[in-house]
């Protein structure tokens, strides 16, 4: 009984709220493409001006992320991949779901440490996050790490949505599961593209100047 509910909650949290936040994050980042540093800052500040933002973050992101991440690692540990025996598309996705889950876990811990955690410590202000991202993605190694992290997270999200639909009994027949495969694959491509385009935008020198201004302001104070 415990296993059934804990797995159901894991599956649900992956989509609501984490999937929702993932898409929201994608849009916030994309405002950097659309509106440059000021557009990005406006989006960040809008998000942080939401009422009860602490509780929204706690129950909408931190706790679900902790549960989904830790329980997900346990699920990955329990699997015994057999691609050598069954070199099939669905079996590849099963295995990649677990592999990308682990990569995403590491990536998210790293990313949160560099950004939100530094804000919480008071080392960085919300308005300076664009500059922080600029400093990160102008380093080739970190850019590669972020690219891998984004592709992993996007795949894990899109393919997770596909298996969520099965686990909750929405897509039952083989045809429904095939159509949802294509839709989720499309979503994976779209989300990956949106995140990567934002990532490249952060390399722009406009964000550097934003970072530099923030630095000088900090130095002056």
């Amino acid at each position: 009984m415990r296993g059934f509910y804990s797995r159901k909650i894991h599956s649900l949290l992956g989509v609501i709220p984490l999937g929702g936040f993932f898409l929201e994050h994608m849009l916030t980042n994309f405002s950097a493409v659309e509106g440059g540093p000021s557009g990005f800052n406006d989006s960040v500040l809008w998000l942080n001006s939401l009422p009860l933002v602490f509780f929204l973050e706690l129950f909408g992101i931190w706790l679900p992320l902790l549960y989904h991440g830790v329980f997900g690692l346990y699920i990955a540990y329990q699997s015994k991949p057999n691609l050598n025996r069954y070199n099939l598309e669905r079996n590849w996705r099963y295995t990649l779901q677990r592999v990308t889950g682990i990569i995403t876990f590491i990536f998210v811990v790293w990313h949160v440490f560099e950004t939100r955690f530094q804000v919480a410590l008071g080392n960085v202000k919300h308005e300076e996050l664009g500059g922080v991202m600029h400093d990160i993605v102008t380093q080739p190694l970190l850019l590669a790490f972020y690219t891998i992290g984004i592709i992993s997270a996007s795949f894990h999200f899109a393919n997770g949505l596909w298996s969520f639909l099965i686990s909750w009994g929405v897509t039952v027949g083989p045809r429904a599961q095939k159509v949802s495969s294509f839709l989720c694959l499309g979503l994976f491509v779209l989300v990956t593209f949106m995140f990567l385009i934002s990532l490249v935008t952060f390399r722009d020198s406009e964000f550097q100047s934003a970072a530099a201004i923030a630095q000088t302001l900090k130095a002056m104070i």
């Binding site: 009984m1 415990r2 296993g3 059934f4 804990s6 797995r7 159901k8 699920i75 699997s79 057999n82 069954y86 099939l88 669905r90 079996n91 099963y94 295995t95 779901q97 596909w162 298996s163 099965i166 686990s167």
Partner: peptide, 19 residues
């Protein structure tokens, strides 16, 4: 099937249907 070791153990690799 909702007890321990039940249907929640499925990971959707879908090898079964092919095998």
């Amino acid at each position: 099937l909702m007890e321990d070791g039940g249907i929640d153990g499925c990971g959707n690799s879908q090898n079964c249907v092919r095998a």
